[in-house]
Simulated scan of single mutants.
Amino acid sequence: MTNQSEARRLEARYLGLALKSPLAPSASPLTATFNGARELEDAGAAAIVMHSLFEEECQKDHAMLHQFLYEQELGHSESDGYLPVPDTFRTAEERYLDNLERMKASLEIPVIASLNGVTRKGWAEHARQLAAAGADGLELNVYYIAADAEESSMDVERRYLDIVHSVRASVPDLPLAVKISSQFTSPVHFISQLKQIGVNAVVMFNRFLQPELTLETRKLHPMLELSHADELRERLRWIAIVRAQVAIDIAVTGGVHSASDVIKAQMCGADITQMASVLMQQGPGVIRQMETEILEWMDLNEYDSLLQLKGSVSYRNAADPSGFERANYLETLDSWRP
């Protein structure tokens, strides 16, 4: 366990929250339960992002409840309006809010809720519920594939901006982060727009799940694959470019698997590193291991704190900024040998 002096060297800030380190488990099955969250806190997590509350799941539960009450009414007309609901029945949002409240009552680290909505009303209403339950911040997990030939890139951006407008009006004081895709036409411009309408942080980037096509059945099947370390390179490039131009908090997610990955993300300008796959593969204990290895690297390279190196190789500070844009395209091609 790091001592108080060492902990100060790892300090980070995100969504206005003072964190003991940039190591924050992202939304995953590990953050879906109180026991999982407590285990992550004990292992050194600086904050957690809860698993997402899905509006579709809430809609399904409400439809089920409506059907149950309807059937009760048909069968108990003599009960003069008394329609008993099973004590054990809890809707998705009730279970989520109970879990959030329990975490906030017992954990010392910040708890950031995650919301995956469908409708503007749903985004706004669920955000209000999460704020009332005590969330320290809210991550908007906008999981949307632009697959309509009639929908332009401006339409796609407008969808995100409309969601943020709706949520921000609903929770004017709650710190907001938006989890975005890497597939925007102009990510820096879009992130600048998000900041202008009240977003406090962006999470880079959402990992869209890719289905598998089975030749025998000629059907698509969902595939859940954990991230790989090489996914980090795309994120580092855009973090470095964004950090130099937009004053907004940045979380990196996807491809963070080692202490070296955390240090690289800090150098490019990330405020925190969100992790899930490495924790699911190696267990929560990897957080302490990363802390130790980061401190050892800082000692070897004479850094007093992570804040000292944050953004040191961003687009503004890089010795060769064009490397982030073209990745030394010609030199890279010429370097290949059979």
Rank of each mutant, 00 (worst) to 15 (best):
Y303E: 00
A135T: 05
D162F: 10
L107C: 06
N99E: 11
S170D: 07
E108P: 00
L174H: 03
Q183V: 08
L300P: 06
S181D: 09
Y160E: 08
Q289V: 11
T253N: 03
P29A: 10
G269R: 03
K219D: 06
A43D: 03
A240L: 02
A127C: 11
L17G: 05
D61C: 08
K104I: 02
A32R: 14
L69H: 13
V156K: 05
D155Q: 11
H62R: 15
M1I: 12
S21R: 03
A113M: 09
G117P: 10
S335V: 09
N200W: 01
A259H: 06
I241L: 04
Q67P: 01
E216T: 14
N328K: 05
C58R: 08
A132G: 08
R207G: 05
A32W: 13
L307N: 09
R316E: 13
T2V: 14
Q274E: 13
F184R: 00
A240K: 03
L97N: 10
L15M: 06
I250Q: 01
N200Q: 04
Y82F: 13
L130K: 00
F205P: 01
P25L: 14
S322W: 06
S182F: 08
P175E: 02
C58K: 01
L15E: 00
L15G: 02
N3Q: 10
Q196T: 14
N35L: 10
P284Y: 09
E212R: 14
P338M: 14
V246C: 09
S335A: 15
Q196K: 09
I248M: 08
T217Y: 12
L215C: 10
E150A: 06
M1E: 11
S227G: 15
L194D: 02
G198A: 06
Q281G: 05
L100T: 04
L19T: 07
R128M: 11
G81C: 09
A146L: 05
E6W: 13
S28Q: 05
A270R: 01
Y143V: 02
A43K: 01
R316F: 06
V188P: 02
E150Y: 01
E151I: 11
S52M: 13
S335D: 12
T33W: 07
S182I: 10
R337G: 02
I250C: 01
M267N: 03
E331T: 01
E296Y: 08
T91R: 07
I272A: 01
E151L: 12
R235H: 08
L100Q: 04
G269H: 07
Y70P: 04
D98N: 11
L140M: 11
P211C: 03
G44Y: 04
L176V: 13
